[in-house]
């Protein structure tokens, strides 16, 4: 028979391919503690030398914005003066 067991902790995994690049989210992993999370993350997400550094973060510790408030949170369509093309500079000034 199959016994009931409690869920292990869910961790989000971030891998840095090499120095100079940032860590990038690649998935999640189940593990009872952080050392085992790192080990499993390496086995599951880096079998072909995809990385040289791994971060694991408990999924429940990630705080996220509400996707239904995307408009309010991120709208900046009315702030075109934040982009370089808003400013007129004579062509013969060259690249700026």
């Amino acid at each position: 028979m199959v016994s009931e067991e409690k869920e292990t902790i869910l961790w989000e995994v971030f891998i840095q391919p090499k120095n100079g690049l940032s860590h990038r989210h690649c998935g999640s992993i189940h593990a009872p503690d952080r050392e085992m999370a790192i080990l499993s993350a390496r086995n599951v997400y880096s079998r072909r030398g995809e990385g040289q550094s791994i971060w694991v973060v408990r999924s429940i510790d990630i705080v996220s914005s509400d996707p239904d408030e995307k408009e309010e949170t991120f709208s900046s369509d009315d702030k075109i003066y934040r982009h370089p093309t808003f400013y007129d500079v004579p062509d013969d000034v060259g690249h700026m």
Binding site: E5, E7, L10, G27, S28, I29, H30, V44, R47
Partner: peptide, 19 residues
Amino acid sequence: AGHGLYLYCAAETLGKSRM
């Protein structure tokens, strides 16, 4: 084994537990 785990992880994002 790894592919199974990537996929379980994707299914979990929809609210179904691994267990």
